[in-house]
Amino acid sequence: MELRPPVRGIGLVELMIALTLGLVVSGAIFGIFISSRDTFRTTENLARLHDDARITFELLAREIREAGSIACGNTNVANVLNNGGTDWWANWATGPLVGYGGNTPGPRAFGSTTGDRISGTEAILLRRGNASPVIITEHNPASAQFKVNTSNHGFNDGDILMACDSQSAAIFQVTNSSQTNRTVVHNTGTGTPGNCSKDLGFPTNCNGNRKERTFAQGGYLAKYSAAFWYIGVNPRGGRSLYRMENNGAPTEMARDVTNLQLTFLTGDRAEPPQYADSFVAANSVTQWNDVVAVRVVLTHQTSEAVGTGGGPVGRSTQYVVSVRNREYVP
């Protein structure tokens, strides 16, 4: 009969040692996992913050550069829109670039609901003609009708346009548009706000008691835009950069933008112009048509609390944008 050695199991001490070693290894792996996850979250949030800052700069800077742009370069602008002198977006006479201090009321009211402007934050209003105009081939002021050089003009009934030639420019609403006939009509009696007159001559005439202005062949038609940029309440209860165009609803352009600061550089109309010594706040600007550059400071924060102190990480970006149609070219 063969004798076998007794079979021994794992002792309690050995089991405790094995469990302890397993817990140490698992704890180390878990710690590495948590650290890697936090690093990834921080990196992802910072990348998103920098992307938002870059996109915001591109969008806002482009509109600042193009403020006051008219394809023909005119400064004599008629406005035949009804309430064109009172509606914020239509009133070109107040200037194509206007800044608002932190407590200065603007087109969007201060408030606490989604899309409302946040008190204490600055804002800017920018008016311009679109940079992609079409060419006027014929204008009949008696029938209030333009003909243009392309059927793909992109104008629709109700659009607000700017017409210009070497003499002057005009802001009006399209009452009828046809791609087939390449026509754009600017009649009265229809549309919102509608036109007060068919006469697009400068100065504005809503009385119909003078010869109607004919725009020359080779002039331009372009869409008109008035955009109000501001810091508003977003749907998540935080802050975002908003843009409100013409009489439309506010659009959230960049989330988690907590502040917008603006200062302005002015210059006279001499050649070469004499510039102010420094950038000044909005309440120190007396003539908005003299502003030649804007310094913008945007403050962003991450959407998640990834900072070392348990809060979001914030960054500020600063840049200076010149108003292109006011640049001095020797």
Rank of each mutant, 00 (worst) to 15 (best):
R4V: 10
V7C: 15
G11P: 05
V13K: 14
L15N: 02
M16K: 03
A18E: 08
A28M: 08
I29N: 15
F30A: 06
G31N: 10
I32W: 12
I32Y: 05
F33P: 07
I34C: 04
S35H: 03
S36H: 05
S36R: 12
D38F: 14
R41Q: 04
T42P: 08
L46S: 10
A47V: 11
R48N: 03
R48W: 12
R48Q: 12
D51Q: 12
R54Y: 01
T56F: 00
A61T: 00
R65Q: 03
R65M: 03
G68S: 02
A71W: 03
C72T: 13
N74E: 03
T75R: 05
T75E: 04
N79Q: 03
N79V: 13
N79Y: 02
N83V: 08
G85N: 09
T86Y: 06
D87K: 15
A90I: 07
A90G: 02
W92G: 02
W92S: 09
W92N: 13
A93K: 06
G95E: 01
P96E: 03
P96Q: 04
V98E: 06
G101E: 09
N103P: 07
T104I: 07
T114Q: 14
T114K: 13
I118K: 01
I118A: 02
S119N: 05
G120E: 02
T121H: 07
E122T: 12
L126C: 02
L126T: 00
N130Q: 09
A131T: 09
S132F: 07
I136Y: 03
E138R: 13
P141I: 09
A144H: 02
F146W: 00
F146H: 03
F146V: 00
F146C: 11
K147Y: 15
V148F: 00
V148S: 00
N152D: 12
F155M: 11
G158D: 01
C164M: 00
Q173P: 00
T175R: 07
T175F: 02
T180D: 05
V185H: 11
T188Y: 11
G189W: 00
G191L: 00
T192Q: 13
P193E: 07
N195F: 14
S197Y: 13
D199V: 13
G201I: 02
G201Q: 02
P203F: 08
N205S: 06
G208N: 11
N209A: 10
R210E: 10
T214C: 06
A216S: 08
A216M: 10
S225L: 10
F228R: 10
W229R: 05
W229L: 06
I231Q: 03
V233M: 11
R236V: 09
R236I: 14
L241M: 14
M244Y: 15
E245K: 15
G248P: 04
A249V: 11
A249N: 06
D256H: 09
Q261C: 04
Q261R: 12
L265K: 10
L265H: 02
T266M: 08
A270E: 15
A270L: 05
E271F: 06
P273N: 04
A276K: 08
F279Y: 06
V280L: 10
A281C: 08
V291W: 05
V292Y: 02
A293P: 14
V294I: 02
R295L: 05
V296K: 13
V297Y: 12
T299K: 10
Q301L: 08
Q301A: 13
S303W: 05
G307P: 00
G311Q: 10
S316T: 09
S316L: 11
Y319M: 15
S322V: 14
E327Q: 15
